[in-house]
Computed example of a mutant assay.
Amino acid sequence: MNDAGEPEESHESGGTNESGEAEGRRSAALLIEEALGFLFPAALRAAAEVGVADHLSDGPRTPADLAKATGTDADNLHRVLRLLATRGLFEEDDQGRFRLTRAGDALRSDAPVPVRSAILMITDRTMWLPAGEMTRCLKEGTSAFDRIFGMPFFDHFTQDAQTAAIFHEGMASMSDAENQPIAEACPFPEKATVVVDVGGGHGGLLLAALRTHPGLHGILYDRPHVLAGHRLDTPETKGRWSVQEGDFFTAAPPGDVYLLKRILHDWDDTQCMTILSNCRRAMRPGGRVLAIDAVLPQDNAPHQGKTLDLMMMASLVGRERTEADFARLFAEAGLRLTGVVPTGTVLSVVEGVA
């Protein structure tokens, strides 16, 4: 107070205001940078689509050389690669040549674990366009896919063979890096067991399971057009597998263990209960379900499942789930959750028994 009893001007208050303004500017800069982030996957898709990484196996090349090899514009290709280099996927030298780094090596079609098909699937218009309409999900409480494409996600695939191929090839590519550690982590019984890979696509996980556990016999269960691309026919698995056509919303083959890898996250709770109930009815005494999905932590930590959850929200009707969510789903389908096994990947094995 001054002599007149009035509050004096506080220099500390002014400092606080200045500090607040600085924090506001930092927040604004951060949010703008985050909003621009969508351009990185766009650039990654462009590089994957033209196959630029396949032309860098023998060392660095100039954008002009790469443009001739890929049938692209040299200046614009340079601009795309320059952005990708900021995240360490490529590296530009002092002569203006680009090389592929170890971090970006999986972009090559012939890489030990190639992910080009997975990138093309994740950034396909069936995922990209609904993500841009996410506000619709908030206001209408439903997927944005139907309004854009005129029908649900999987119905669209039945009418667009090219998009279906992108999806199934992309899922197989996305799975290749994770199938082996998941197969090793799965709690399979020691005795000879029939494992049913429900909606197993091209059979990458089942193949890894059969290789890892010689006592297993496998059934790959999926739609006919998907089974046509299966990869189970190898010398080391001869006589230990079969394929069976069907719809997991209708029934499941008899078996001892049911694998559901990245299946439940595609569907809402009611549909998931139908799938799980069909497995429960078909399983032999002592059988179990192994649902392999992201299990979301209930904290603020980053987790790929939290990102994928928004893809499920925008393009499909499913969701990623917490352990409590899985326990509830299992209980309503006549199963009891008995454990969650980490796999060293973003996915966990959620085990349920009758």
Rank of each mutant, 00 (worst) to 15 (best):
S19F: 04
S19E: 05
G20V: 06
G20N: 12
E23V: 11
E23W: 06
E23D: 12
G24L: 12
R25K: 12
R25L: 13
R25Y: 04
R25F: 05
R26V: 11
R26A: 14
S27A: 14
A28W: 10
A29M: 11
I32V: 15
E34G: 06
E34T: 07
E34K: 11
A35Q: 07
A35H: 06
A35I: 07
L36T: 10
L36C: 08
F38P: 02
L39D: 03
A42W: 01
A42N: 06
A46P: 04
A46M: 09
A47F: 05
A48Q: 02
E49P: 04
V50K: 02
G51S: 07
A53C: 05
A53G: 07
A53V: 09
H55L: 07
L56Y: 01
L56G: 13
S57E: 12
S57G: 09
S57C: 06
D58Y: 00
D58A: 15
D58T: 14
G59K: 03
P60H: 00
T62V: 04
T62P: 06
P63F: 04
P63Q: 03
A64F: 04
K68T: 08
K68H: 12
T70K: 09
T70H: 04
G71P: 09
G71E: 05
G71D: 03
T72P: 06
T72Q: 15
D73W: 08
A74W: 01
A74F: 01
D75R: 14
D75Y: 05
L77W: 06
L77A: 03
L77Y: 02
H78R: 15
R79A: 07
L81N: 00
L81G: 00
R82F: 03
R82A: 11
R82Q: 07
L83F: 02
L83D: 01
L84C: 11
A85E: 01
A85D: 00
R87C: 08
R87N: 07
L89P: 05
F90Y: 15
F90S: 08
F90K: 03
E91S: 03
E91Q: 02
D94V: 00
D94F: 00
Q95H: 04
Q95G: 06
Q95R: 10
G96Q: 01
R97H: 00
R99A: 07
R99F: 00
R99T: 05
T101Y: 02
R102Q: 09
R102M: 08
G104I: 08
D105K: 09
A106H: 12
A106I: 07
L107I: 08
L107H: 10
D110W: 10
D110T: 13
A111V: 11
P112S: 07
V113Q: 13
V113G: 05
V113T: 15
V115W: 02
V115H: 07
R116F: 07
S117P: 11
S117C: 10
L120R: 14
M121T: 04
I122K: 12
I122V: 15
D124M: 10
D124T: 10
D124N: 15
D124H: 15
R125L: 13
R125S: 15
T126W: 03
T126P: 05
M127Y: 15
W128H: 14
